[in-house]
Deep mutational scan, measured.
Amino acid sequence: MQGVVKVNSALNMRSGPGSNYGVIGTLRNNDKVEIIKEVDGWYEIRFNGKVGSASKSYITIVN
Rank of each mutant, 00 (worst) to 15 (best):
E38D: 07
V4K: 06
E34H: 10
M13C: 09
G18Y: 01
S9H: 14
W42D: 01
T60G: 06
R14S: 04
A10Y: 15
I24A: 03
S53E: 02
S19A: 13
R28A: 10
A54E: 02
V33N: 01
N29M: 09
S57D: 14
M1E: 06
A10S: 14
G41M: 07
L11W: 00
S9I: 12
S53D: 03
Q2L: 14
K32F: 12
V39I: 12
V23Q: 05
E44R: 07
G25M: 09
I35N: 00
Y21E: 03
P17W: 03
V39M: 10
G18E: 03
L27K: 00
F47R: 03
I35Y: 01
V4D: 02
D31I: 05
Y43W: 06
S15L: 08
I45M: 03
W42M: 02
G52R: 01
G3V: 05
I59E: 01
K56N: 05
D31P: 02
P17Q: 04
V23G: 01
I35F: 03
G16R: 03
N63T: 13
S9T: 13
K56Y: 04
N30C: 13
R28N: 11
K50L: 15
Q2S: 11
Y21V: 02
G49R: 05
R14C: 08
N48W: 07
Y21R: 03
Q2D: 08
V39W: 11
S55P: 15
G22T: 13
I36S: 03
I35Q: 01
G25L: 08
S57N: 13
R14A: 02
K50Q: 13
M1P: 07
R14F: 14
V7G: 10
G25H: 08
N30S: 07
V5S: 02
Q2C: 15
L11G: 05
V5C: 07
L27I: 05
G18I: 00
I35R: 00
V5K: 02
G16D: 00
I35L: 04
I59Y: 00
E34V: 11
N8H: 13
V39R: 07
I61D: 03
S55W: 14
V23D: 02
V51R: 09
S9Y: 11
G49V: 04
G52T: 02
R14W: 09
V39D: 07
R28S: 10
G18D: 05
D40Y: 08
I24Y: 00
G25A: 13
V39T: 11
G49F: 06
V51N: 07
Y21D: 03
Q2F: 15
V4G: 02
Q2H: 13
N48T: 05
L11D: 00
V23H: 04
E38L: 08
I35H: 01
P17E: 03
I59N: 00
G18V: 00
A54Q: 02
I36K: 03
W42T: 01
I36Y: 07
P17A: 06
S53L: 14
I35G: 01
N29F: 08
F47W: 10
G16K: 02
R46K: 11
G25I: 08
V51L: 11
R46V: 12
N8R: 13
N20K: 11
N48F: 08
K6W: 05
K56A: 12
E44I: 15
Y43K: 00
I61R: 07
R46S: 10
N20Y: 10
E38A: 07
A10G: 10
W42N: 01
I61V: 12
G41A: 06
S15I: 07
N8P: 11
V62M: 11
D31W: 05
G41P: 01
E34S: 07
I45G: 00
K56V: 10
M1S: 10
Y21T: 04
I45F: 07
I59A: 00
I59H: 00
K56I: 09
V39P: 02
G41S: 07
Y43P: 00
E44W: 15
N63P: 12
Y43M: 04
Q2E: 11
S19W: 15
V62I: 13
I24L: 06
N29C: 11
A10K: 13
V39Y: 12
I59G: 00
V33P: 01
E34Q: 10
S57R: 15
M13R: 02
N48Q: 13
I61Q: 06
A54D: 02
T26R: 10
E44S: 06
I61S: 04
N48C: 10
S15C: 10
V5N: 01
V39G: 05
Q2Y: 15
K56L: 06
N48G: 10
I59R: 00
R14I: 04
